[in-house]
Design a protein around this nucleic acid. Sequence first.
DNA 1: GTCTATAATACGATAGAC
DNA 2: GTCTATCGTATTATAGAC
Lengths: 187, 187
Amino acid sequence: MDTKSMIIDTATTLFQQKGYIGVGLNEILKTCNISKGSLYHHFPNGKEELLIACLKSMSESITTDIEDIFKRYQTTQEATLAMIEKLIENYNREGSISGYTFTSIVSELATLSAPVRNACSYLYIKMQGIYSNKLVEDGLSKETADSIALMMTAAFEGGIMLCLTQKSSHPLKVISQLLPKLMKGFQ
Amino acid sequence: MDTKSMIIDTATTLFQQKGYIGVGLNEILKTCNISKGSLYHHFPNGKEELLIACLKSMSESITTDIEDIFKRYQTTQEATLAMIEKLIENYNREGSISGYTFTSIVSELATLSAPVRNACSYLYIKMQGIYSNKLVEDGLSKETADSIALMMTAAFEGGIMLCLTQKSSHPLKVISQLLPKLMKGFQ
DNA sequence: GTCTATAATACGATAGAC
DNA sequence: GTCTATCGTATTATAGAC
């Protein structure tokens, strides 16, 4: 694998663990076993350019992951339950939820840096689109599907935050039980 | 007002705007027009001790604010709509949502610092309690009320995140339209 | 393309005078 | 209780050799 990709992969993991401001360039360089000159050769605009590359890489893996799940199951309800179950399994195994959200990485920057905010917005809209399309397949109108998909995106994001602060997967479990009832109300 | 309270108030505003790691001690000192020695006299353990004091102060103002709203309206549905409307008005006026959430302040620390995580957890549980009590008053069972209250807390938290990244109050509006339907499904 | 050396600055924290 | 001066140590970024 080329150096640039290796830097992105390593930095992504570190950013997920400690957040953007929580990880210094030196830590990234040490983990990658490269020098400062090499990093600035690949990312002339420094740390923020590297972050954007990491967010883009994460966006792709998260959305293809969710898309796969939503293709594998017939209804939104089944797919949603499977997705949350995967999140909970991930939480039980690793003790934290690192994928499926940017919040813990960039929330402190989201209000300051426009490129970062755009990367967040892009991911949320992409996720929402996957949910909405499936709900339309289920027979809901485009408008209703969009609303529920937005609610799902918000509930997941908030649910992950609750799990992280309470050190428990219980919030996501409760949400997975309630979301189907919300969908049924429209069918 | 005494110096200590003034420091807490000023630091709270700065943390809300730029996040914990985004605000340096020097910026706080300059805004307060005090010296380093004064700050460390009131907060011997430095920046993190100051943050905890700010979170505690915010917790109190947020929960009394929500409690007031929930006392003023008869049903959870009305109170919820009023609360979200207030959030949206606040967003339209100031262009951002600074109250009602810690996420944008401490999410990068929530996984690292136990005292910070506890402060977050405390606020979420307090909010959830307010919602749950009102839902029990509405006639729901304790168990159902707890579940819906958790869902509300998560949806608000996620909804705020969506509003901030998309620079729009639309997500919270949609959530305020959907939450009543979720409650009705149980009545 | 990668390295070393270095710059310039900001950080949190401490010591001691008043 | 507040001040000034200072200490280490981080930070991001750059220059120039190879």
